[in-house]
Write a protein that binds this DNA or RNA. Structure first.
Lengths: 347, 347
DNA sequence: AGAAAAAGCTTATACGTTTAAGCAAAAATA
DNA sequence: TATTTTTGCTTAAACGTATAAGCTTTTTCT
């Protein structure tokens, strides 16, 4: 049995007034609309009795505002994005917004589908971690005047709202740290993509080498595809670390997932960290606690990224201005034992 | 600049017909509505040119159906729920549905808020991991005739749609395995809650003891609060394992998060697994790969749980029948070295 | 040719909400 | 008392869509 939700009309009928009056009262516009005290009282009473709840869909249609955001991440099951989603949910809720979510899987088509679906559902704005090659999709949003903000990554070609970690800085500092700690041949494992966050991290890596007077060697860098990265990471590590002379003496990992997978392989192969290989990871992970040496890692400020993304989006929604703001969030390096040969193993 | 979305009216004006005709054509009802070929062609052409996209909010209002689901999990940032969310997203999308999500944080108030918000947004149905004590909330949904399905946990008191792992069976088998492998005093660490999933797991544990002729000892069971479970898990382990005679010789962990936290402590304390302590975890985790002995764990069928939840909800939505289906999904035990003293350590 | 049927459209109404505009009665002013 | 102002309400229109019902005009039938 479908219980019909009570509408303004139902209340109006019960009280014996027009729906307009009910609407005025329930929206607290009794003064402006000069509603009589007696009627107002009755309406409120009946509304409470009938447990009236406004139909937000109807309101959305009326105002062209749904108080809904669309969140498009690469993969909600990735703890990194799940964490961002959690904070975004909270921030959105504080502002009376609800969140629709979807995973693009780093695929152009899925990304476009999600954007279309969300727009057709009249979301007020979008928070997007754009996939590689989606510039056209994003530009279309801009042309349509849809409020949106890119998160975690951006495009250098297009001016948009974006909130990203200072990736260059993060990686630069990480590599500098390794070099300061005596490593001579620091390598990197990154995703094979042109997305800015990856390019910036790679640039930071290279700049750190340059500023330290070390010439970059292309054999120090492995780029793995997003699809089946696990095998490729394993292969890359085997390439770096095979018996006939190690290609690198330290490694920075460019993402969360690469970090975890790399550590798994390093653990399985029995590589000694930090003696034989210095290591710095990107993002936190539970697994770090189990590695025999504590892991040095780059800690992004997820709270700040999410807060700023929501904040920036809200401004876009409210002002509808053409001004775009790029926000760069600093990260910190949490120092463990994995990045320094000179370390003394604690307890 | 706000670009107005094109509506049926815009197309109608451009073509010079009524909106009704446009609606008929774009919904493929040309035959039923006897629309002329010429007009139909023009309308389609103009609609394509103007890149018409239907306003799903308006449609939702018209039909009282939004093709939106509400997903309420305990915490989207928990990998277990994030994984469920991912699959639900996929299954929903296959059926033309989009997903609103929210985290209840195991708090009654948040749960109620989310339910209200989602209902006001006219979701067609809800997938809920209910929080402890939320029976009244759930029952209200039932009374209202709102389609919903409980996931991961249920209530024994209320008849509802529910999709849960066969928790009793899972835990029963795990404990039986430990006992078969020679452990005499298997303990358990669980959450302190009356939710069925936990009760069932605890019952499974106790029944396994009983069926093995072992008398349950209340000192073998630790119940930790959801709030700051990490400290409590550590304290519980210290209680079990302190120097003056070990209270237990094996442990099963009742959830994902308890498992990971327990392993961290065990690792930090240097407890020998499986020699000094047999261990079986609930759910998978990346951290298992780093433990010095491979971890035996109960693997829930997340795919099946999610699929069934969506499927069951869809049936509720379509049929609006009063029939409730309880679906129990089997799990498997993935055997590692952590649950058997007689194991030979591999490579 | 005249009537009936079919074709091709428009009008009207509805979903639930908001709000400007309008209207009658009561109160205040002259 | 006659006029204006205020009060308290209703009507109407709108958001974008869908569809039953109605209305011409053309075609088909007898």
């Amino acid at each position: 049995m479908i219980k019909k939700r009570v509408s303004l009309k139902d209340i109006a009928q019960k009280v014996g007034v027009s729906t307009a009056l009910v609407s005025y009262v329930l929206n607290g516009k009794e003064k402006e609309a000069r509603v009589g005290e007696a009627a107002a009282k009755r309406i409120k009473k009946v509304a409470a009795e009938m447990n009236y709840q406004p139909n937000l869909i109807a309101r959305g249609l009326k105002f062209g505002k749904t108080h809904t955001l669309g969140l498009i991440v690469a993969d909600i099951s990735n703890p990194f994005f799940a964490m961002l989603a959690r904070i975004i949910e909270l921030e959105a809720q504080k502002r009376g917004y609800t969140v629709l979510f979807g995973s693009s899987d780093e695929q152009l088509e899925k990304s476009q589908n999600l954007i279309n679906t969300f727009l057709n559902r009249q979301v007020d704005g979008l928070i997007i971690t754009p996939v590689a090659g989606s510039q056209a999709q994003i530009e279309e949003l801009r042309n349509k005047g849809v409020p949106f903000v890119l998160m975690d990554r951006g495009f250098s070609e297009i001016e948009t709202n974006a909130v990203v970690t200072d990736n260059h800085d993060a990686m630069y500092n990480a590599v500098k740290l390794l070099i300061r700690n005596g490593y001579k041949k620091p390598g990197i494992i990154a995703y094979d993509t042109t997305l800015t966050h990856m390019m910036d991290r790679i640039a930071g890596y290279k700049d750190a080498l340059k500023d330290s007077g070390i010439k970059f060697n292309s054999k120090w860098m492995a780029k793995v595809p997003y699809g089946n990265y696990k095998e490729h990471v394993a292969a890359a590590l085997d390439g770096f670390l095979d018996a006939k002379g190690r290609a690198v003496d330290a490694l920075v990992f460019a993402t969360n997932s690469i970090s975890v997978q790399s550590l798994k392989v390093i653990h399985a192969r029995g590589i000694k960290v930090p003696q034989d290989l210095g290591v710095i990871s990107f993002d936190e992970s539970d697994v770090f606690d189990f590695f025999y040496s504590s892991i040095t890692y780059i800690k992004q400020n997820l709270q700040s990224i999410s807060e700023n993304a929501v904040q920036s989006l809200m401004q876009s929604i409210d002002s509808r201005s053409k001004k775009y703001t790029k926000i760069t969030v600093p990260s910190v390096i949490i120092k463990g034992e994995s990045s320094s040969r000179r370390t003394t193993r604690g307890l």
